[in-house]
């Protein structure tokens, strides 16, 4: 499938996703879908820079965590509305992205060097968020007050006590809207000169430069957009769990999650996210059934399955489906 084809295929998933509450009433399934869409937002953020731009970041927690901390702290310390803080969260993530992007791209760090510098920055912020206790509350984390007044549900961007429908589906729709925004942004990007130039830089940076593409500016633009999308995941996370600490914000888990979804799914990140959580839940279930509680065992099984998937479908699930589609249509033509 072409990149545009994948975006369209991804877009077609939105209608059924929006209709989910008509069918799915089990809280557990909603949680599963929410988690999946959350991963898809992270993945789509990473995808702008990694998938389209070919700059593989291992530290996207940097943008997730910065947005989450800003979202939490401005409410916690200054009592700002979450609807206001979210703009600062996005801006903050973009500011950090501008810094990292400037340093990396100005000095021509590519490939594994770029991956390492993003990883290093995320780790640095991890440590800093622990040690600047006055600013971040340190390792204790930031706990936001739970709003129990249904009338304040929207004002506080908290759906826990917002009536039977919203308390179940409020955050599901939040993350679905965020994912739609992410998809719309990528869809727009693909039809602009910026998007075309970004892909050209991924394909061959020198050739792109020779053809008038300012690779530095294009990559900087990509990391900014990437960070802005990733920030949405951070905002959602804080509003949903009302808590953030250094490990959740800047630990490696989010960085890995962000890059796994697009790599497993191919560029259709929604598929990858479904797959990751599908496997994750299944392995937990299997292990729960056969070995009871064995923390860590599910991760090993998860890893094995990931390796198998990548071994058999190096271009991701979308690549696999595209291949099957091509074969089916070839046969039809013959």
């Amino acid at each position: 499938m072409s990149e545009r084809g994948r975006t369209i295929a991804g877009g077609l998933l939105f209608a059924p996703l929006a209709a989910v509450p008509l069918v799915v009433t089990s809280g557990r399934w909603i949680e599963f879908l929410e988690l999946t869409l959350f991963t898809a937002v992270l993945g789509q953020g990473w995808n702008v820079l990694g998938g389209y731009g070919g700059q593989y970041s291992f530290g996207h927690a940097l943008f997730f965590g910065t947005a989450a901390y800003i979202q939490a702290l401005l409410q916690f310390k200054l009592g700002w509305s979450p609807w206001l803080t979210m703009w600062f969260a996005i801006l903050g993530a973009m500011l950090v992205a501008a810094g990292v992007g400037y340093l990396s791209f100005r000095y021509g760090l590519r490939g594994s060097y770029f991956a390492l510098i993003t990883l290093a920055f995320a780790e640095a912020f991890h440590v800093l968020s622990r040690s600047f206790i006055g600013l971040t509350e340190g390792g204790r984390g930031v706990q936001l007050a739970l709003n129990q007044d249904p009338a304040q549900a929207f004002a506080t961007f908290q759906f826990n006590f917002a009536g039977p429908f919203l308390s179940t589906y409020g955050f599901y729709y939040t993350i679905l809207v965020f994912l739609s925004i992410a998809y719309a942004a990528v869809w727009w990007m693909q039809r602009t000169r910026f998007g075309a130039q970004l892909v050209a830089v991924r394909e061959n940076e020198d050739a792109a430069e020779a053809l008038g593409v300012d690779a530095f500016r294009v990559k900087l633009g990509a990391i900014l957009l990437s960070a802005a999308i990733t920030a949405l995941a951070g905002i959602y996370h804080v509003q949903k769990f009302l808590f953030i600490d250094p490990g959740i914000a800047y630990g490696p888990a989010k960085s890995v999650e962000a890059l796994f979804a697009p790599i497993i799914g191919g560029l259709g990140t929604v598929l990858g996210a479904f797959f990751i959580h599908g496997i994750g839940e299944t392995t937990k279930e299997i292990i729960g059934t056969f070995w009871q509680e064995r923390p860590g065992l599910d991760l090993i099984l998860f890893g094995v399955i990931l390796v198998l998937v990548l071994g058999f479908a190096p271009r991701g699930i979308a690549g696999l489906l595209g291949e099957a589609w091509r074969r089916a249509t070839d046969r039809a033509c013959n």
């Binding site: 892909v199 050209a200 394909e203 061959n204 020198d206 050739a207 792109a208």
Partner: peptide, 8 residues
Amino acid sequence: VARPFPNL
């Protein structure tokens, strides 16, 4: 040595 954008 030609440097096409191979996937485009």
